[in-house]
Design a binder for these strands. Structure first.
Lengths: 358, 358
DNA sequence: GTGAAAGCGCTAACAT
DNA sequence: ATGTTAGCGCTTTCAC
């Protein structure tokens, strides 16, 4: 029933070798007449090459594996998309497996991908103990995209959190704020360490002494930003701005501020981190630093392809920067605010209209 | 370099056939001694079967394709996860392609998956014109998960939006509301049609006449819920509750209400639809109807597997129900409110601690 | 109970 | 310029 190369060759009246040479798109001298016949036969028969057979023969699948920490994490889909965009440009494909933050599942995923003969792997946060442990499990090109535990090792792509924190703080300083509080994530996370460093550096660059009373630690969740802010508002000389190490805690800052009868951004300016999807449609809309997910995906895919092609031996540690997205909560925008439309929304695509389903 | 079945057979001192029979897990009479030798050899050599070769031979890949409308759409990852959970239980895997709402890309995706010899396809919203058009492109088992254009055809899994709207309205009625407004999505979307029907049915069931002045149409975005609410607040006998056909518009309802100097839920109760991730951490936290993404994924995967195994000829149209999630905006909960932690957050997994990266 | 060998569909080295 | 054929790694029929 399925059409094979042999069928095409028969119909075209040539050998399967000739048919293959023409249809596989390899540059090989063929008469124009033969080419036409083969192409015609293939088209008529609706020939679709069997990629499984091709892969077995070529010992190359043009497919990479992506192991993600958890597909429900909001950062994962844009990273996947970034990866796939670049893969597509290079006629590569991906198969995504979910480790669910579990090293045992991650190990199984690696083994499965290896059995599938994938050409390489991108880990979007690995929960194995070290890159050596990973190398022991898989003898194919691979690299890491680290968002939270982003110590800058070899073969790793990480966000430039230090830079991100600096531009956030810089923005507040430029708006005239002098007492800028910082609510960080748990200290053993690299992302928290780096964001704190950026905060400190930027203050120092402006000659502003760091007031330890203005630095609090949360757990990345709304509630912790809320609680930290209640403490900050009780500080003798109250901060006029709060930089939260993620958008969730920034929401908490807003709620605590409002509950205290103060206004955001008039009394307290707020800047978050991540640029989560809701940042554009909460009120006040959140000024925040982008987590450059798609960009990291681009870099990861390009680097892995270079690795696969043998153009490079290892990927140099790469820092990827996100921009500051200025909305309402920092006070830089005044006047009426139009809420943003959802990023990935069909209603934004005016070209497309879904016809009646059949 | 890579270990093949031949290597294992050699080391074990048996034929390839015997090694295969033992390692492929087929039930076949073998001496226990031989079995041990083969198993030992495989383990020592670190044998990993080549799934490409196996697939070619078996003409089955134990892999299905998932074509999603857009991986950045917030509903897609949980559907994928639901699908993958069930696949995993059956030793099946998936490869996900993104059509980006484009029928041309979707067609390419189908062709690619066919060439990969996948065993079936799940379409998570198809943008091709009809299921006949899809059938003409692919001769393998397939079915559809429709969220928005969810007319209930054969081989389709859709959310029960009529039911969802009914339980939302019922909840408000039980709280004593009589004038319940409804802000719907654009009328040509099946989801909007069904939610409107549910709204009407539930009101009718309670003997409450439908007041056309209380039914508005938005475009699913925050801004439209905001604008619609401004109109609703100007209605002579103002509604005491608003049911918005999605969470985004429900946010808009809240903003317009607050801007008019009224409070949610005290003056206006609000219920949304979808249970988006932010529903638990906006303030007031949104009472809303779940879009049963994971459940739809489960049903889709199970159904496709039945189709593949030939246990059924076609999937009966299936409606999947979501529950009402009661939070703050409807007024049913009073007192202090703890913000929810993010659903997919590593910080919630206390068992897991990431050791120092290597 | 075990082995030899065919063959899945394809590409490429080697003829011609 | 085209054809013949080996072989990628595996499963399974058929023989013993």
């Amino acid at each position: 029933m399925p059409v094979s190369l042999m069928n095409v060759a028969e119909v075209a009246g040539v050998s399967i070798a000739t048919a293959s040479r023409i249809l596989a798109g390899v540059d090989y001298p063929v008469t124009d007449k033969t080419r036409q016949m083969v192409l015609k036969a293939a088209k008529e028969l609706g020939y679709r090459p069997n990629l499984i057979a091709r892969s077995l023969r070529l010992e190359q699948t043009f497919t990479i594996g992506i192991i993600v920490e958890n597909i429900l994490s909001p950062f994962i889909p844009p990273i996947i998309r970034g990866i796939q965009e670049r893969l597509k440009q290079n006629n590569y494909f991906s198969i995504t497996l979910d480790s669910n933050w579990d090293p045992a599942i991650e190990t199984e995923a690696i083994e499965h991908l290896d059995m599938r003969q994938i050409d390489g792997i991108i880990f979007v946060e690995s929960y194995l103990r070290s890159s050596e442990e990973v190398s022991a499990l898989i003898d194919r090109p691979h690299l890491f995209v680290h968002r939270l535990f982003n110590s800058l090792g070899d073969n790793s792509i990480v966000p430039d959190d230090r830079y991100g924190a600096r531009i956030a703080v810089k923005h507040l300083l430029e708006l005239g704020h002098q007492r800028i509080a910082f609510i960080n994530g748990p200290e053993n996370w690299d992302a928290a360490t780096n964001r704190l460093a950026g905060y400190q550096e930027e203050l120092a660059a402006w000659g502003i002494a760091l007031d330890p009373a203005l630095v609090k630690q949360g757990d990345w969740q709304v509630q912790s930003g809320y609680a930290a802010t209640q403490q900050l508002l009780a500080v003798a000389e109250r901060p006029t701005a709060v930089f939260a190490a993620n958008d969730l805690m920034a929401l908490g800052v807003t709620y605590a501020t409002q509950e205290a009868g103060l206004k955001v951004p008039e009394d307290i300016a707020v800047v978050g981190y991540d640029d989560r999807d809701f940042a554009g449609f909460v009120r006040p809309a959140l000024t925040t630093v982008q987590m450059p997910c798609e960009k990291m995906g681009h870099v990861a895919a390009e680097s892995l392809l270079s690795l696969i092609r043998g153009e490079i031996k290892a990927v140099e540690p790469t820092l990827v920067r996100g921009k500051l997205v200025v909305r309402q909560s920092c006070g830089a925008n005044s006047g009426e605010w139009k809420f943003e439309a959802e990023r990935a929304s069909l209603t934004r695509r005016h070209k497309q209209t879904k016809p009646l389903p059949g």
